[in-house]
Write a protein that binds this DNA or RNA. Structure first.
Lengths: 194, 194
DNA sequence: CATACTTTTGGACATTGTCCAAATTTTTAT
DNA sequence: ATAAAAATTTGGACAATGTCCAAAAGTATG
């Protein structure tokens, strides 16, 4: 494992445990058995380090978030669940995004992308679900409401979970929020029985 | 205006503009025409300062969040709107709560309170709305879903707005999210016109 | 083997929050 | 009014942080 990868891996681990801003570069370097300036050789600023982690998350989720014709509600929920697990892997970032964006231009740009993309994918998939008769959407307003509510949950479930559901396992937390999205979808669902 | 109040007021102003962690005590002191150690006389640590601001917000919202018999949907939404305006006044805190809780025990405790209280009040008021026939709630699951979804919006709308809706005015932003909650409620609404 | 490139190091820098003893101002009691 | 006490303000120090740079060490290439 190359030095750069070792730094990224350990940084992610420590950032997830204690938060990006509470892990010092000297501590990280110490645990890795190197000097601070060795880290700054690969990542001139801490932001660069964080940025690289955020690229990893972006790439992970990009491959998952796709628009699929003949999508079922179950498949849509599975897609969201995969995204949720990735967010959990990089929770230090997800929890901090609002801050990071204020300071880190690179992250801000990519996050804008992520967000637009996520909204578009959710929206398009909801349209698919509607077209195929899995849900009934009357007008643009309803579509917009569903999209943005699901997007809000997808963006902030992990922050709420960190505060409210610490006692639950990661799997239980994810399950809870996926269920929430499902409940919301079922409100627009087409009753199959009669 | 006493020194302590001047510090609190200017700190809130600057924290709101640039974020709690990006405003240094020396800069704050400089603008107030005093030395850093004068701030630490009133607030031994920065956390103490932030904590006091968080008490102010807590108090503001405590007086608004009440359970009211014979509540209408409109009144419920007005209540939420008032809370939203208070959150805006202290947005530096609302945006940072997830972080602050990790480092500041005092804030963590009070935030736990805030959250429990808000959930309880929302839930109780929804029960009132249901009892009075403004909305139809079939079972505990539905009530729980409605409560937690509204609570999620109430907690994170401002973070999302900071990223997604910067171009909108504060009033428009609040309006957007209040509308969201209304749409959600109307899904459980009782159609008045046969 | 010598040269060039990459990687690692140690030490410096300004800035941060925190702390404390001394100086100053304000309040209180005589 | 004045002396004693208390509250406030100050300047300077501290350790820790992210950032930076010149030199050393290591590795690869001709």
């Amino acid at each position: 494992m190359k030095t750069e990868e070792k730094i990224l891996a350990k940084a992610l681990e420590m950032f997830n445990e204690r938060g990006v801003e509470y892990v010092g570069l000297r501590e990280l370097a110490g645990i890795l058995g190197m000097r601070v300036s060795n880290i700054t050789y690969y990542f001139p600023t801490k932001d660069d380090l964080v940025n690289r982690l955020s690229i990893q998350l972006y790439d992970l989720n990009s491959s998952i978030l796709v628009v699929k014709e003949d999508l079922s509600i179950e498949q849509f929920l599975e897609m969201m669940e995969q995204v949720f697990w990735n967010q959990l892997k990089y929770r230090c970032l997800v929890v901090s995004f609002v801050h990071l964006i204020g300071q880190n231009k690179l992250i801000a740009a990519r996050y804008g992308d992520t967000q637009t993309k996520r909204n578009t994918v959710i929206r398009s998939n909801l349209e698919v679900l509607a077209r195929n008769g899995h849900i009934r959407i009357k007008n643009e307003t309803e579509l917009e409401f569903l999209t943005s509510t699901i997007a809000l949950v997808a963006r902030f479930w992990i922050s709420e979970a960190a505060v409210t559901w610490q006692h639950l396992s990661a799997g239980q937390q994810i399950n809870h929020y996926i269920k929430s999205i499902e409940t919301l979808l079922r409100l627009y669902g087409v009753e199959s029985a009669k």
